[in-house]
């Protein structure tokens, strides 16, 4: 399983005493900027504590030097070029905690749809001068390359969850992102279950919560943008989809939207049992 690997809660509150202001760096790799926009949306809240934290933005991960060290690095985007690969290793070196944010960083993102396709054919169709394009065959999550301390899922990430996690990390406190399904949040928020009440295919039961059941709250099925929850029983849900008239191809498409291979990998890895 590429994402959804269980990692221990990060051992960060090692310095409960308040020392120098923590440093926060934000890095961007291949992604749509949606997650960084979420960060910018939270900036008002972050500014309120600007005297207690130093924030450095690196909007283009390919320029400038890494320097550091940083207490916390937020990393957006997936690894798609050989340069990315070197860069992320340097960032890991320079960071005490490395937090990946969004489906691109945690699962390879939509751009991972190219995985398994012929990359040269792609580039020759899309670009006039394909020889300028230096890309790896696959778009891969950060955790394929370096150790990741914490993942914030979603496409894009949830602003409330981001602020909560930053608040905890910047104060060297504990974070415990949810590991339960989107269904748990559906029931907690009072959303009606679209799968049961209108036979709408919904990935909620196998998707990790954290979005507050955003889509079911609007009477739509969950698209799985937060990626697989622990023990995702993909086959079990596929069977139910078949029972409500969703065929395997449609299910496959649904499973591969945002987190591309993550659900398929999970299904391959063997259903509900570890």
């Amino acid at each position: 399983m590429r994402i959804g690997d269980r990692r221990p809660a990060i051992d960060w509150p090692t310095a409960i005493e308040q020392g120098a202001p923590p440093t926060l760096a934000v890095w961007k790799f291949a992604s749509c900027d949606g997650c960084q926009l979420t960060i910018l949306d939270c900036e008002d809240q972050l500014l309120a504590i600007a005297d207690r934290v130093r924030i450095a933005y690196f909007p283009e991960a390919t320029s400038g030097s890494v320097d550091g060290p940083y207490d916390i690095s937020l990393v957006e985007g997936s690894i798609t070029t050989p340069g990315d690969r070197e860069r992320i290793a340097e960032i890991r070196q320079a960071s005490r905690l490395l937090v990946t944010i969004g489906a691109c960083a945690t699962a390879g993102g939509i751009q991972a749809l190219r995985n398994g396709a012929d990359i040269e054919e792609f580039t020759s169709i899309v670009y006039a001068q394909p020889s300028y394009i230096d890309v790896l065959a696959d778009s891969t999550p950060i955790s394929d390359h370096v150790t990741v301390d914490l993942e914030l899922r979603g496409c894009p990430i949830d602003p409330g969850q981001l602020v909560g996690v930053l608040a905890a990390l910047l104060n060297r406190h504990l974070v415990r992102p949810p590991t339960t399904s989107v269904c748990v949040e559906c029931k907690a928020t009072g959303a009606a279950c679209v799968l049961v009440a209108s036979a709408t295919p919904c990935l909620g039961p196998i998707t990790q919560g954290g979005c507050g059941a955003l889509c079911p709250g609007f009477d739509r099925g969950c698209y799985g943008c937060f990626g697989p929850k622990e023990h995702p029983n993909v086959t079990g849900l596929r069977r139910q989809f078949a029972a409500i008239g969703v065929d395997d191809d449609a299910t496959d498409r649904l499973l591969s939207t945002f987190n591309v291979a993550a659900f398929a990998d999970a299904e391959q890895a063997g259903g509900s049992e570890p």
């Binding site: 509150p13 090692t14 409960i16």
Partner: peptide
């Protein structure tokens, strides 16, 4: 063992 006890083991006199 785990994050909470880990944090507790890092407390200091006066905390």
């Amino acid at each position: 063992a785990g994050a909470i006890t880990s944090a507790l083991t890092h407390l200091r006199r006066g905390d």
